[in-house]
C-alpha cells in the first residue's frame, strides 16, 4: 500500500511541478530541487526493495524508518535553505527601500536646483 501511495504522490508532485514551471510560478532552479524529491518518491514506489537493502546494510531493522528519516532530514535542510534565502531577500528589500529614499531625496534636490536655474534664466 505504501508503495502505491508513494508512487501516486510522486506522480502527482511531478505533474504539479511541471504545471508550476510551465506557468512561471516556480523558478527552474527550485524545480530541479523538487525534481530530485520526486525521483526519491519514484524510487520508493517502484523499487521498495532498494530502501530495505540499504537499511539492512545500515543495520536498520525496519526499512521504511530509513526513508522517513531521510525525508525529514531533507525537509529540515530545505526549510533552513529557505530561511537563509528569506534572510537574504529581507536584507536586499530593506537596502533597496533605503536606496529609494536616498534617491528620492537626491531627485528632489536636483529638481529644486533645476527650477532655481530655470527661474534665474527666465
Amino acid at each position: 500500500m505504501i508503495q502505491a501511495v508513494a508512487t501516486l504522490f510522486g506522480l502527482s508532485l511531478s505533474l504539479v511541478l511541471l504545471f508550476l514551471i510551465r506557468r512561471d510560478r516556480l523558478h527552474i532552479s527550485h524545480g530541479v530541487t523538487w525534481g530530485v524529491a520526486v525521483l526519491c518518491f519514484a524510487l520508493l514506489g517502484f523499487a521498495p526493495g532498494l530502501f530495505d537493502a540499504i537499511a539492512r546494510e545500515l543495520n536498520i531493522i525496519y526499512g521504511p524508518t530509513l526513508a522517513i528519516s531521510l525525508a525529514i532530514a531533507a525537509l529540515v535542510i530545505k526549510a533552513l535553505l529557505l530561511d537563509i534565502e528569506c534572510s537574504k531577500l529581507r536584507v536586499k528589500n530593506q537596502r533597496l527601500a533605503q536606496k529609494l529614499a536616498m534617491l528620492e531625496s537626491d531627485l528632489a534636490d536636483h529638481r529644486n536646483a533645476t527650477n532655481k536655474a530655470t527661474s534665474s534664466l527666465g
Binding site: 530593506q94 527601500a97 533605503q98 529609494l100 529614499a101 536616498m102 528620492e104 531625496s105
Partner: peptide
C-alpha cells in the same frame, strides 16, 4: 528621507 514602507526604527536609522 521617506521610506516607501515601514522597515523599523533601526532600518530607518541605518538609512
Amino acid at each position: 528621507l521617506s521610506l516607501p514602507f515601514q522597515i523599523g526604527a533601526w532600518g530607518a536609522t541605518q538609512t
